[in-house]
Write a protein that binds this DNA or RNA. Structure first.
Lengths: 160, 160
DNA sequence: GAAATTGGTTACAAAAGTATAACTATTATT
DNA sequence: AATAATAGTTATACTTTTGTAACCAATTTC
């Protein structure tokens, strides 16, 4: 580890720790005021859109969510008919979760609603800043997804 | 608003909404397991480090935190002797909050602890990716801070 | 085939965050 | 001077999230 790289890591962490409350306050407020879902179940929907099918354990692992909580959230999403439980043909213990057609559609429109204020804020930026934020958010998403979802310590593997 | 800019905004929102749970799960877990503070009070400390002095109302405004919750959080931070209340000489209704010397020191060491796992994950990246993530996080922080902390709708102004 | 492990659920307790109303003290309005 | 508005606290109720332990069913291990 070069000294320069270490300095960069310190600054990355400093930046991420500043970004977090900004996103958190915006999204959680909007979720509460504009939907009857909670942040946790929205995270699950986003995950399912990306991975198509995930078991209960995999969901909990990728979101660092305790298993009993995953069960409760999925129960709510099933009551809303946004996801469905599928039995795994290879292992009858496993219950796979998948978005329903309605669930995907509803998720997209919910996302539009909860990001409305954020969109308005971004719109006010100059075209140059929008392009810079676009590039930056894409890079951050790509690399953070790589390092956060993949296994960290051995044995903490989330598969898929 | 050009069509291209609108497409960029959509993608920015999509990226941010993906990044949020990644940061959220990492930080909130670490905060719970490694400190006796809660995420909300850490947000306040980060804000105070940036602004030096803020009133109760300003804190609540910038973090979208209800006023009674701000009172409770500050009470805890005062019990830990990390912040102090100061009377405002110009307006005796206002109570200003400032980090104590110890508070700043403790905050820095808490940050080191709660970002330990994140550092290890970043360290495993190539130097090229670290540099890209550094640049991206700096741009995202700069622009998001600008649009999220500043007033959105008129009358929702947080001052300072 | 017995024992241990894994996937998921149930039940319960506790922490954290959100929302609202009522209240005091101070300042601003008129 | 009376009234309205603002800053902050207290009290209360509720939702969301986290954590733990016990439990069943299915699979793996030895």
């Amino acid at each position: 580890m070069s000294e320069n790289a270490q300095i960069s890591i310190d600054k990355i962490v400093e930046n991420l720790i500043s970004i977090h409350p900004l996103l958190s306050k915006n999204f959680t407020r909007a979720i509460r005021s504009k939907t009857n879902l909670n942040p946790g179940s929205l995270f699950i929907l986003g995950l399912l859109k990306k991975y198509t099918v995930l078991s209960m354990t995999e969901i909990g692992c990728k979101l660092s969510m305790p298993k009993p909580h995953v069960t409760a959230q999925i129960d709510k999403l099933i009551a809303e008919e946004m996801v469905e439980r599928l039995n795994d043909p290879n292992d009858r213990r496993i219950i796979n979760i998948r978005l329903t057609d309605n669930g995907l559609k509803d998720f997209e429109s919910i996302k539009l609603e909860i990001t409305e204020e954020l969109r308005h804020r971004i719109e006010k930026l100059s075209t140059e800043k929008i392009e810079r934020l676009y590039a930056a958010s894409a890079v951050a998403r790509e690399i953070l997804t790589e390092i956060m979802i993949e296994p960290s310590t051995p044995g903490n593997d989330c598969k898929r």
